[in-house]
Design a protein around this nucleic acid. Structure first.
Lengths: 140, 140
DNA sequence: CTCACTGCAAAGTGTTTGCAACGTT
DNA sequence: AACGTTGCAAACACTTTGCAGTGAG
């Protein structure tokens, strides 16, 4: 688990207990939690920790590119420490988010964006909205 | 321009001047405006119109699937009355949003999502982040 | 005439900020 | 010891709501 502390130091972020807790919580879940969720999950272990700290921490981590911040049309942002390129599947019933790590080749699209619009793509994201297996089973 | 009024009626939405103004403003721009922008653009013609009306109106239009609401990691939502599937190019310098209507074939990806995860895709969106032509010209 | 819509102000929600105390380096 | 970080409360920005009055159907 020292890897995480190393990552923080490499980005000149001090390794405080709260920060490490938030970062490792994110690194060990695939639930794409919101700030609220992170806060609630950690408050048993860190009763004094404030919501503002969670907000400040995810902002630092995001600015150092240690986590990703994203929004799927919901009220609050979600966070993810899994930095490999992947896209998200949002179940419109249960609102859980699943990951898809399969690679989708968009090099030709990016090339077309460049040649047609002069647009230089730095990154992209792709979100699929639909019904997850579990919810579609319940539905019937 | 009667088409728009027809669309409203077809969705049991009353054709009020404000509603028509907002809807046709959206139908005739490709700027993906925010509520604030819509409000400011129309307040010369509709000085009495309130911000709340714009919010309520875009919510109705969105619920009737006459416009799309989306968020590109900014503070406020953007709206778009162009309902054909297309993806967005967000310039990280000037924050303008461009459209790309070229079709990207994801049928095989959606098929894989179904067979691997049991996930039934209803819709998807794709956003490219980068530098637009104009901004990259200024940069040099 | 009815009921959906408007406009205003007030409330709500997620997020950010100011600042004194604290703790990592 | 210095300076980044924390925690609290207050401020903020965007959005929603309650309600009386209005106007489209």
């Amino acid at each position: 688990m020292n890897k995480l502390a190393e990552n923080l130091k490499a980005n000149k972020l001090k390794v405080t207990p709260q920060r490490l807790a938030i970062y490792s919580y994110l690194a060990n879940t695939n639930e794409h939690p919101t700030v609220e969720t992170i806060y609630n999950s950690l408050k048993d272990d860190y009763p004094a920790m404030s919501l503002a700290t969670v907000y400040k921490t995810v902002a630092s981590l995001r600015d150092s590119h240690l986590i990703k911040e994203f929004n799927l049309g919901e009220d609050s942002n979600r966070y993810d420490a899994h930095m490999e390129n992947h896209c998200h599947l949002l179940c419109t019933k249960c609102h859980r988010v699943f990951d898809y790590y399969g690679d989708i080749d968009l090099k030709h699209v990016m090339y077309e964006l460049k040649s047609t619009f002069g647009f230089d793509t730095e990154s992209f994201d792709m979100n699929f909205y639909g019904i997850c297996e579990e919810c579609s089973r319940e539905q019937s």
